[in-house]
């Protein structure tokens, strides 16, 4: 029996119907995975640019003197927690638990906003206290472009998730939209894994002892 015939009665059947593609994967999800794969390459070039210029011009800036690893560490915890809440949000959407979707999406957005506030504070601190701007030196250029691009991804994710949060309060939200929440979740988790890499290669390695 076709899953379509159940779709009107059962949210699970409605979601299963969306899998009736040649790959067995929902088209939206497949498109998002393809986009994330391309975004990997984008961030790969930004990260390698930063690393290369850190190696070529090691003495332009002493990152340990300007970084606030406690703040950055706190931001990392916040982003990981937002990822956890996003996973719960997707789970709630698949269960048809609309209240859960709202609460968890709200929590994800809240933590995402805290992360962004931390990044704005960090940038403001660097510019006002250390005079590090996008054009002051090559470290500033690569650092702001890399972390700023990630911040823009976070901001876009917050807008996307926020629009879904609003949508859940309308009558138009249906069980099939669990897939859309899941696709938005994939994007949000990707933002998290990019930060995992940035946190290590941009921030933590600067604190490794005996590095000259």
């Amino acid at each position: 029996m076709s899953a379509h015939s159940h779709a009107a009665d059962d949210p699970h059947a409605a979601l299963e119907a969306l899998k009736e593609t040649s790959t067995g994967i929902e088209n939206k999800k497949l498109a998002m995975w393809a986009f994330l794969a391309s975004d990997c390459m984008f961030f790969g070039t930004l990260i390698s640019t930063h690393l290369i210029y850190r190696k070529i011009y090691p003495d332009i800036v002493d990152p340990k003197a300007i970084f606030d690893i406690e703040l950055t560490g706190f931001s990392s915890f916040i982003l990981l927690m937002s990822s956890f809440l996003m996973a719960l949000s997707v789970s709630a959407a698949h269960k048809g638990n609309i209240k859960g979707v709202r609460w968890f999406l709200g929590g994800t957005i809240f933590f995402g906003l805290i992360f962004l506030c931390g990044q704005v504070y960090e940038f403001h601190h660097f510019v006002t206290d250390f005079g590090l701007t996008l054009s002051s030196n090559v470290f500033g250029s690569t650092f702001y472009v890399l972390t700023g691009t990630h911040g823009v991804h976070v901001a876009l994710g917050i807008i996307w998730l926020g629009s879904w949060l609003v949508y859940t309060f309308t009558d138009r939200y249906k069980a099939e939209h669990a897939l859309d929440i899941e696709v938005a979740g994939l994007y949000w988790h990707f933002v998290d894994i990019v930060w995992i890499v940035i946190f290590t290669v941009v921030y933590l390695v600067e604190y490794v002892p005996f590095l000259t």
Binding site: A87, V90, H189, F190, I193
Partner: peptide, 8 residues
């Protein structure tokens, strides 16, 4: 861990 479990 994130891609395997959180990203399903």
């Amino acid at each position: 861990a994130v891609i395997w479990w959180f990203m399903h």
